[in-house]
């Protein structure tokens, strides 16, 4: 699907375990930060890099290039493929069989996320509070944003029940 279509729940085409492994490979470090700086200094290279992310993640996850990737905390299922773009879990309209209320016949992406996260022993990730999306980042490379530290505090560090978490990014 292309990002210009209406969002619809998308089952990732790779296993969650592969996602977690990729997540570890992409974890920010000094080398990545240096690389991101070099890429961002060259507009054409940046466009090419962003297109590469778009193509690969669209195929793998139905990525919509929100620019602030939630995948590491959602069982590597993209929440922006939800027709309501919910970042904090499923709405109350999921059908008894687990289908999306808007697209009967398609499994709710949050049901998919829950199943993937649980199987991988990551279900506690889903209790973290996801902060509101910064729409200015739409269309930009989440990898560059990640390596440059621009998406820090996208979600809270715990479930926020013991101590209220601030809605503003730290």
């Amino acid at each position: 699907m292309s990002a210009s279509e209406q969002p619809h729940p998308t089952r990732p085409s790779i296993a969650a375990s592969t996602g977690y492994r990729l997540g570890r490979v992409l974890a920010p470090n000094r080398a990545y930060r240096w690389l991101a700086g070099r890429i961002e200094a060259r507009p054409r290279l940046r466009r090419w890099f962003t297109a590469a992310e778009r193509h690969s993640k669209q195929r793998l996850f139905g990525c919509r290039m929100c620019g602030q990737c939630a995948l590491p905390a959602t069982g590597y299922a993209c929440p922006m493929s939800c027709p309501k773009q919910l970042r904090n879990g499923p709405c109350g309209g999921v059908s008894a069989n687990g289908d999306c209320e808007v697209y009967p016949g398609r499994r709710c992406v949050w049901v998919i996320a829950y199943e993937r996260a649980e199987r991988a022993g990551h279900s506690a990730d889903l209790t973290l509070l996801q902060r509101p999306v910064d729409h200015r980042l739409a269309g930009s490379s989440s990898w560059l944003n990640y390596w440059q530290g621009r998406d820090e505090g996208l979600w809270t560090s715990d479930d926020g029940l013991a101590h209220p978490a601030p809605v503003h990014r730290p």
Partner: peptide, 20 residues
């Protein structure tokens, strides 16, 4: 909605709203 899948996540989701 206590009855909507994933049913086992619903109490946790209420917990998120309470935390919020």
């Amino acid at each position: 909605n206590p009855f909507a899948p994933p049913v086992r996540f619903r109490a946790a989701r209420l917990g998120k709203k309470i935390a919020a």
